[in-house]
Design a protein around this nucleic acid. Sequence first.
DNA 1: CTAAAACCTGACGTTGACGTCAGAGGCAAG
DNA 2: CTTGCCTCTGACGTCAACGTCAGGTTTTAG
Lengths: 135, 135
Amino acid sequence: MRIGELAARSGVSVRALRYYEEQGLLDAYRSGSGQRHYPESAADRVQLIQMLYAAGLSSRTIAELLPCVEAKVNTPESRARLAAERSRIDAQIAALTRTRDRLDAVIRLSGSPDSGCMWIADQDVAAETSHSATP
Amino acid sequence: MRIGELAARSGVSVRALRYYEEQGLLDAYRSGSGQRHYPESAADRVQLIQMLYAAGLSSRTIAELLPCVEAKVNTPESRARLAAERSRIDAQIAALTRTRDRLDAVIRLSGSPDSGCMWIADQDVAAETSHSATP
DNA sequence: CTAAAACCTGACGTTGACGTCAGAGGCAAG
DNA sequence: CTTGCCTCTGACGTCAACGTCAGGTTTTAG
């Protein structure tokens, strides 16, 4: 398929796809006239790239992790890299969970009569939140 | 306390604090000579701002939520706003959890003998991940 | 009192992931 | 063949959250 269709299928812009190629995240076969052609699998690849972007990884980091797909690089370094990014994401989830719980506490007090919507200290959050999990 | 000490305590730069003030996120008493002075509570405030930044909120959004602190704005709009951001964060946590699980699957296969480190399809991830929670 | 350290405003620089525009070429339909 | 849409490269624009520098005032240590 050509770039427009891939863009439509994967929900990203044509410009973004060219940018991904420029960053070494996505390669395309070129027809004689220079037009890009992608296999079906490219859509999945783009989804994965989007996931990693959404997880806060830079294109450089993604480029360092993705070779794991094409080549059979399974070195100690690549595994360490994967583990490092995994734990980064884990920490990010934990931080987001704390933030969400804090917002929850505010929302709960916002519903109560006179509170006037005050921000809550951490111990209050801990006391009020026994339902959503922070492992 | 003055801006340098607040920066040291809260772990952000002096420039960032001035930027927060510029964005209406943080106010300071000015001494006659124009220097900023902050109460102790400012450190907590800065921590909160950092939390919300880390959760992907823009300074404009934070500025719209923070008045909830000072004034007693507890309108339906403010509560809707809080709820909206809360669910945004929730969705973000869910997406990050999926990404983490996918990385986990890759890491697990990366440890097995010949696999050559392949990326995994979603059903494989679902099949392999019965331990980490995705509520 | 003086020098160093901290603070002020104002303004320009940086970075990443694209958006957008210009100008030129390619491709299927009528 | 030509019309209309798609694609190409190349280059400049954008936006947010600061970094950094300049040039001047204030506070503090000795």
